[in-house]
Each structure stands twice: as structure tokens, then as C-alpha cells.
């Protein structure tokens, strides 16, 4: 009898992330690093937004960049913390979407190319031509800093596709894994989001004697908060503006440090035109 009670309680209490109530305002984020950190980061954001907006706010975790975009597209979430590329893709799929805020650092984001010490490569200001004929891992297939931008500069330099340049090309799925793979020697080289690199370096996760930065790309716009156009219709006029203002107002050092960004600033869809152009240039998006 008691077992039954416990089981029933467990059944009832373990809320399922899938059955969201209609009134709940949901958001997601691309899973760009270690998932436990994402939970920590976005749990705080959810609590903050709930307080600011006065509606129930829920963070919906997803497994891939594409899943984040799909959840946004299916209106399972109305707001999302996208990368440059996933944001462009999402806004392309959901008409009326707007980029409303970006991290201060996202205005001039860069990618680090990193190398295992056995590759024999070291830091240089010029594009490191010595990376050819080694093994290379990108981040997620839909990542801006982990795939789009590094692939663009690699193609630009060699005039060849990565498959032709490297002996092996992989996709690690997130930046934490890219670092781990290059550090362990599974890949000789990798492309990684500079913020994640510096964050993990500071946290002591990275062993600098095994893996180091060898080049950084020119800067480009990256992460941003994008919101669906139909939120005002659901939560009342001015809701979108309220969300935007709440994001821009984030000053809690703890929340900012979790991203990590120094602050959030305004963004527009047009800020991301260069990303879209780059995606078309390397064939990740079809030209219109």
C-alpha cells in the first residue's frame, strides 16, 4: 500500500516538460555547452523573467541547435537564445520574428581555432596554413562560432571544402566537447566559441599544456534573443517590448556571469545580415 502511495506521488509530481500550459511563456536556448551549466544559467533567467513579466516562465531544454529552432517554429517556445546562424534560420522560418537583444560581446564575437600540442602548431596572427592534412572538429553542425565562421575562413583561405583540406572532419555537437576532443587528442584541431573557451579556462577545465589557441577569426555578430511576432496577441499588447526591456535590464552579476556576458544590448534583424550572407556563401542556406 505504501509503495503504491509513493509511486502515485512520484507519477503526479514528476512534471513532464512536454505538457506546457497555454499561459506559460516558454523559452529555449541552443545547447552550446555542458548541459548542467545550461540548466543553471537558464533556470536563473526563467526566475528573473517570471518576476519581471508577471507570467509563468519556463525554460525548455533541447538536445540540438535544430531542436531549438524547431521548438521555436512550432510555438513550443516563444523566445530563444540563439546563435547567429540558428537565429537567422529561426526568423526565416517564423515570419514576424525579431532579434531583440544580444550580449554586449556578441557584437564583435570571434572563434578560436585550437590545437592539440602534438599538432606542433602555435599561436599566430596570420591564418595558420599548417592546419591542412590534419584532423579537425567543428562544434555543432548549426553553430555559428563552431562551424559557420571557421568554415567560411577556412574555405576562403584554401578555396576548398573542409573535407578536402583535412584528413578527417567531425562535428562534436557542442563547444565543451570540442575542447575535450582536442585536448584528448581525438582530433588535432578544433573550432570553438571564444567565450566558452575562456570560461572553461578560468574554471580550470582546460589543461593549457595539452591544448592551446592558434588563431582567432575576425569578429562577427553572434548570439541574440529572438522572439516570435505573435506574443503580443497572446500575452497582450506591449508584451514583446516588456520582454525586451527586461532582458536589456538584466544587471544581476550572477545571471550575466552564467552566460557569460557583461550586459545585454539592443539588436535588430539587420545586424545579422552578414551571418546570412556567410551561410549562403558556404552553401548552408539556399540563396533566394
Amino acid at each position: 500500500m505504501r509503495l503504491l502511495t509513493v509511486l502515485t506521488a512520484l507519477l503526479v509530481s514528476s512534471s513532464i516538460s512536454l505538457s506546457a500550459l497555454a499561459e506559460t511563456f516558454s523559452f529555449t536556448a541552443i545547447p552550446d555547452q555542458d548541459e548542467s551549466r545550461l540548466q543553471e544559467r537558464f533556470g536563473k533567467v526563467a526566475a528573473y523573467l517570471e518576476k519581471e513579466l508577471g507570467v509563468k516562465v519556463k525554460y525548455v531544454p533541447v538536445k540540438s541547435y535544430a531542436a531549438a529552432v524547431t521548438a521555436y517554429r512550432n510555438n513550443q517556445v516563444q523566445l530563444a537564445w540563439f546563435g547567429g546562424l540558428s537565429g537567422v534560420q529561426a526568423r526565416e522560418l517564423v515570419a514576424g520574428s525579431e532579434a531583440i537583444a544580444q550580449g554586449y560581446e556578441d557584437q564583435f564575437f570571434v572563434t578560436y581555432l585550437i590545437a592539440n600540442k602534438r599538432s606542433g602548431l602555435s599561436m599566430s596572427d596570420d591564418f595558420p596554413a599548417g592546419i591542412a592534412n590534419k584532423t579537425f572538429t567543428f562544434g555543432a553542425k548549426g553553430s555559428t562560432s563552431g562551424r559557420l565562421m571557421p568554415e567560411f575562413y577556412i574555405r576562403e583561405h584554401f578555396k576548398k571544402s573542409p573535407e578536402q583540406i583535412f584528413t578527417r572532419v567531425g562535428f562534436s555537437d557542442d563547444h565543451s566537447r570540442t575542447i575535450a576532443l582536442v585536448q584528448s587528442g581525438a582530433y588535432e584541431l578544433g573550432a570553438v566559441n571564444y567565450k566558452v573557451w575562456e570560461d572553461e579556462l578560468a574554471a580550470g577545465i582546460i589543461d593549457p599544456s595539452e591544448v592551446s589557441v592558434i588563431w582567432q577569426t575576425p569578429s562577427y555578430p553572434d548570439y541574440q534573443w529572438s522572439i516570435r511576432g505573435d506574443v503580443d496577441a497572446r500575452w497582450g499588447t506591449g508584451f514583446k517590448a516588456k520582454v525586451k526591456q527586461s532582458l536589456l535590464n538584466i544587471s544581476d552579476a550572477e545571471i550575466l556571469a552564467a552566460f557569460p556576458r557583461q550586459s545585454f544590448v539592443e539588436a535588430t534583424n539587420d545586424d545579422y545580415q552578414p551571418i546570412k550572407d556567410t551561410a549562403m556563401a558556404i552553401g548552408l542556406m539556399d540563396a533566394e
Binding site: 540540438s64 522560418l93 553542425k141 548549426g142 548552408l284 542556406m285
Partner: peptide
């Protein structure tokens, strides 16, 4: 196939 889904193609 996974790539195509990731690229929304």
C-alpha cells in the same frame, strides 16, 4: 540526413 535536418533542408 542529420545534417539536412540541422540545415532545415
Amino acid at each position: 540526413i542529420d545534417s539536412a535536418f540541422e540545415e532545415f533542408r
